[in-house]
Amino acid sequence: MVAKILIVAEHAGGKLNPSTAKCVACASSIDGAQIDIAVFATDGAAVAAEAAKIQGVKTVLTVNNAANAEPLAAVLAPQVVAVAANYTHVFGPSTTFGKDLMPRVAALLGVGQLSDIAAVEGAYKFRRPVYAGNAIITVEAPQDKKLVATVRTASFQAAAQGGSAGVEVANVSASLPSHTRFVSRSAAATGRPDLQTAARVVSGGRALGSADNFKIIFSLADKIGAAVGASRAAVDAGYAANELQVGQTGKIIAPELYVAVGISGAIQHLTGIKDARTIVAINKDTEAPIFEVADIGLVGDLFTVLPELERVAG
């Protein structure tokens, strides 16, 4: 049986999120899979054109509806269900967008959902982390049911550009609820690289001590063209914004370089960075668990190390 996979595109401001190309990469590792992407938007033409360029995609479907101006799971889910009828698999990214939406889709379809696919072993066999990444499980899904899943974006390299999929407008008739309404979104326009896709990330922890001190993290990051991350402790304390939290319950990332500054290395944090190519740890405590996973460790006071590093780096 050929796997027919529908991927729900994530997009904002008329731009496709890189998580979509990562879902395509995941789907492409299923032998013989036929991959389509669905774009739900008010006018999805621009996003669909971008999606059509991802290699491995056969058709991009656009579902245009004024109700799709903002990605509300309750509004999108019935439409995804309608489009999903002809597919064996429905994938979304394990970003907050996908985590919000895909379980709702699955439940409407009357099936379970597989979270955070980290590796493909077959069309119905996957590996995924549990217990904050302390265990990797192999999971088999039933072949007689539609498989709804989220893809752990840190585990896949975005599928290459250069494709030329067909774009079709799909008409979907689904009754959409009005019980959920978008009010506002505050996204800090920082001009810095996006944490989820950045090649380099500098993260600060509780040791920074204040939002003001945390500026030295931003400053080093800017010097080396990195995104900024933070531990939960730093976010809880208000030194850094919530969207910067890296870890089990924040963002799972896989940069080329991760610099952990004044972060102890709790398991919940480490699970967010274990796919990083090179981890650098700066911590004044020789015994800090972060040194167990660091490729390069430096024991020292961050407040003397960082200014020095900033002077010579970049």
Binding site: V111, L114, I136, E140, P142, D295, I296, G297, L298
Partner: peptide, 19 residues
């Protein structure tokens, strides 16, 4: 609906250096 067939520990990262 899902069958977990195997549990494995995560791949260990190779030992780093201290500078």
């Amino acid at each position: 609906q899902f069958k977990t067939t195997k549990y494995e520990p995560p791949a260990a990262r190779s030992k780093g250096i201290m500078v």
